[in-house]
Lab assay of single mutants.
Amino acid sequence: LEELEQFAKTFKQRRIKLGFTQGDVGLAMGKLYGNDFSQTTISRFEALNLSFKNMCKLKPLLEKWLNDAE
């Protein structure tokens, strides 16, 4: 859980630094990986307001997006 919290915090900082909005991330993930995510979902991930199971599902996809974006 602590690792997920740290990743969510780091993800948000890096996303902002790269100049992407939460909506941008959701759209890009849909185009790149075929998984559409709403701005709300990205927001809830960053705020740790998703279930643990959903957080765990999203984390590898967001890590991949972040690596591709950088």
Rank of each mutant, 00 (worst) to 15 (best):
L1C: 07
E2L: 10
E2D: 12
E2F: 12
E3S: 06
E3F: 04
E3P: 01
E3C: 03
L4W: 05
L4S: 03
L4M: 11
E5K: 11
E5W: 07
Q6T: 14
Q6G: 12
A8Y: 00
A8N: 01
A8S: 06
K9G: 07
K9R: 14
K9Y: 07
K9Q: 05
K9N: 08
T10G: 09
T10L: 12
T10Y: 07
T10W: 04
T10R: 09
F11G: 00
F11Y: 03
F11C: 05
F11V: 03
F11Q: 00
F11P: 00
K12R: 14
K12T: 12
K12I: 12
K12W: 02
K12P: 06
Q13L: 12
Q13A: 11
Q13I: 05
Q13P: 04
Q13K: 15
R14C: 03
R14P: 00
R14I: 04
R14V: 12
R14D: 05
R15I: 00
R15V: 01
R15A: 01
I16G: 03
I16D: 04
K17I: 06
K17H: 08
K17E: 14
K17T: 10
K17A: 13
L18W: 03
G19A: 02
G19V: 03
G19C: 15
F20I: 15
F20L: 07
F20G: 01
T21L: 03
T21G: 05
T21H: 04
T21A: 04
Q22H: 05
Q22M: 05
Q22T: 12
G23K: 15
G23R: 07
G23V: 15
G23Q: 11
D24K: 05
D24S: 06
D24W: 03
V25S: 01
V25F: 02
V25G: 01
V25I: 06
G26C: 09
G26Q: 11
G26M: 09
G26H: 06
G26N: 10
L27C: 15
L27E: 13
L27K: 08
A28K: 12
M29F: 04
M29V: 15
M29E: 01
M29C: 06
M29R: 00
M29P: 00
M29I: 12
M29W: 01
G30W: 13
G30R: 14
G30P: 03
G30C: 13
G30S: 11
G30A: 14
K31R: 14
K31Q: 10
K31S: 07
K31F: 05
Y33A: 09
Y33Q: 07
Y33N: 07
Y33H: 15
G34K: 09
G34A: 10
G34V: 04
N35P: 10
D36Q: 10
D36F: 04
D36E: 10
D36K: 10
D36Y: 09
F37V: 15
F37T: 08
F37Q: 03
S38P: 09
S38Y: 03
Q39C: 09
Q39M: 08
Q39H: 14
Q39A: 14
Q39K: 14
Q39S: 14
Q39G: 13
T40H: 10
T41K: 14
T41E: 04
T41M: 10
T41V: 10
T41Y: 08
T41L: 11
I42T: 02
I42A: 01
I42Q: 00
S43H: 07
S43P: 10
S43M: 12
S43G: 04
R44K: 09
R44I: 01
F45G: 00
F45T: 01
F45Y: 05
F45V: 02
F45W: 03
F45P: 00
E46D: 01
E46K: 01
E46A: 00
A47G: 13
A47S: 09
L48A: 08
L48S: 12
L48I: 14
N49H: 07
N49Q: 13
L50C: 13
L50S: 04
L50R: 01
L50T: 07
S51M: 02
S51F: 01
S51Q: 06
S51H: 07
F52T: 14
F52A: 14
F52C: 09
F52L: 12
K53T: 10
K53G: 11
K53L: 13
K53V: 09
K53C: 14
K53F: 15
N54I: 15
N54C: 14
N54L: 12
N54F: 11
M55H: 03
M55Q: 10
C56I: 11
C56F: 14
C56M: 15
K57Q: 11
K57A: 10
L58W: 13
L58S: 04
L58N: 02
L58A: 08
L58D: 02
K59G: 04
K59M: 13
K59R: 12
K59P: 01
K59V: 08
K59N: 03
K59H: 11
P60H: 06
P60W: 03
L61E: 06
L61M: 08
L61K: 10
L61V: 12
L62F: 11
L62R: 00
L62V: 06
L62W: 00
L62I: 06
E63K: 05
E63R: 04
K64H: 06
K64I: 09
K64R: 11
K64P: 02
K64L: 07
W65V: 03
W65S: 01
W65L: 03
L66I: 11
L66M: 14
L66C: 07
L66S: 04
L66K: 02
D68Y: 07
D68W: 06
A69Y: 09
A69K: 13
A69E: 14
A69S: 13
A69F: 08
A69H: 09
E70K: 14
E70R: 02
E70S: 15
E70M: 10
